Amino acid sequence: MSVLRFAPLAICLSMGLYVSAQEVEPTKPEQTEFYEPVPPKVRPGNNGSAPSDAIVLFDGSNLDNWISSRDSTAANWTLNKDGSMTVNNRTGDIQTKQNFGSMQLHIEWKSPAEVQGKGQSRANSGIFISGLYEVQVLDNNDNYTYVNGQVGSIYKQHTPLAMASVPTGQWNTFDIIYHAPIFEKGQKVKSGTLTVIQNGVLIQDHVEIKGTTPYIGWPKNPVHGKGPLKLQDHGDNSRVSYRNIWVREL
């Protein structure tokens, strides 16, 4: 006889324990109710602003949370009066001083209103999760390119479910859920996943991260723990701007 037979059903459910079909069917509502653990209270933000438990990485006031990916010196991107920052062409990528594992990321970006270039050379940047896995930033309005490299793609791995960008020059929102891969004894034993919502539209639905996202070659799976959030300077006068960046650690 299972020892769980004598445990209240609600306790079993709260512990995620399997209850077999042979158990007696509950006859009272309280038998399937549980009251612990109590979820923590979080005060939500307004219009994309950070909730009470978030780590604010950029609020427009300074670049203190960011460094150059090239040499760890102070980030040298342009701080704008409207509370945004813009890629400073050919100064290199920037990344957070803090490292993150699984997380919820909110970030807003826009391409310049003045259209320059085409294909991958039009307002190209990227958001690298753990410094390794790129969610593509690109102006794809009337701008054709390979679909696993278009805006919202997991670069060279997953084509977005939709192209949900606002008009060129307006602010886009990415809300990204990242679950980090798991490594044991130098090998990946569980892939990470990414979910991306662009402007309220689901464009990546809990997709498997196959590995790194290189421009040339297959994905690689280096062993890693927590890593920085990195923003790309694509080096072709992309002029992409970012604002309102915050993270909730999961």
Rank of each mutant, 00 (worst) to 15 (best):
146 Y>C: 01
81 K>Y: 01
206 H>K: 07
84 S>K: 04
97 K>W: 09
61 S>M: 05
151 V>M: 10
138 L>I: 01
86 T>H: 04
7 A>D: 07
188 K>V: 13
84 S>M: 05
140 N>F: 03
143 N>I: 12
49 S>T: 14
54 A>Y: 11
59 D>R: 01
31 Q>V: 03
82 D>E: 05
71 D>G: 08
148 N>S: 12
226 K>G: 00
152 G>Q: 07
49 S>G: 09
84 S>P: 01
172 N>R: 05
84 S>V: 02
36 E>Q: 11
127 I>Y: 04
236 D>C: 09
176 I>L: 09
153 S>A: 14
242 Y>T: 08
46 N>W: 12
27 T>F: 00
229 L>P: 01
88 N>Y: 02
227 G>L: 05
98 Q>H: 01
11 I>D: 14
78 T>G: 00
59 D>T: 06
35 Y>T: 13
72 S>C: 11
197 I>L: 09
241 S>T: 08
70 R>L: 13
139 D>W: 04
141 N>D: 15
9 L>H: 13
242 Y>Q: 11
183 F>N: 02
172 N>F: 11
231 L>N: 01
103 M>Y: 07
17 L>C: 08
118 K>E: 15
10 A>Q: 13
202 L>Q: 09
157 Q>I: 05
36 E>G: 07
195 T>K: 09
231 L>M: 06
66 W>K: 04
79 L>N: 08
189 V>E: 08
127 I>S: 00
190 K>G: 03
69 S>C: 11
16 G>D: 06
87 V>K: 01
30 E>S: 12
157 Q>R: 03
64 D>S: 11
47 N>P: 00
158 H>Q: 10
188 K>P: 02
243 R>A: 11
2 S>T: 06
155 Y>N: 04
227 G>Y: 00
91 T>V: 10
121 S>W: 14
164 A>P: 02
23 E>D: 15
39 P>V: 07
152 G>S: 12
